[in-house]
C-alpha cells in the first residue's frame, strides 16, 4: 500500500475526516428519522390527526 510513504499520516487523517464526517451526517439522519416517527406515533396515539389526512388530501 503506502506504509513507507512519509505522508501516510496525512492520507489516513484525510480518510478519517471523511468517514467520521459522513458517518455523523448519516447517523444524525437515522436518529432524526426515529425521533420524528416516535413524535408522530405519540401524537397519533393522542388522537391528533392532520387536517389533510382527515380531508383525504395527502399533500401535506
Amino acid at each position: 500500500m503506502f506504509g513507507s510513504d512519509p505522508h501516510t499520516g496525512f492520507i489516513l487523517a484525510s480518510y478519517a475526516v471523511t468517514v467520521i464526517t459522513l458517518g455523523l451526517v448519516a447517523g444524525w439522519i437515522v436518529v432524526d428519522h426515529r425521533t420524528q416517527k416516535a413524535r408522530l406515533a405519540d401524537l397519533e396515539a393522542r388522537g391528533i390527526t392532520r387536517r389533510s389526512a382527515r380531508g383525504g388530501d395527502l399533500s401535506s
Binding site: V30, R46, I48
Partner: peptide, 25 residues
C-alpha cells in the same frame, strides 16, 4: 442521504402541523 433527509423533513412538518392542532384543542 438527501432522500432520507427529505423524508425526515416531511415527517418533521407533519409533526409540527399535528402539534399545532393539539395546541388549538
Amino acid at each position: 442521504l438527501h432522500l432520507a433527509a427529505m423524508r425526515n423533513e416531511i415527517l418533521r412538518r407533519r409533526v409540527r402541523a399535528m402539534q399545532m392542532v393539539a395546541a388549538q384543542r
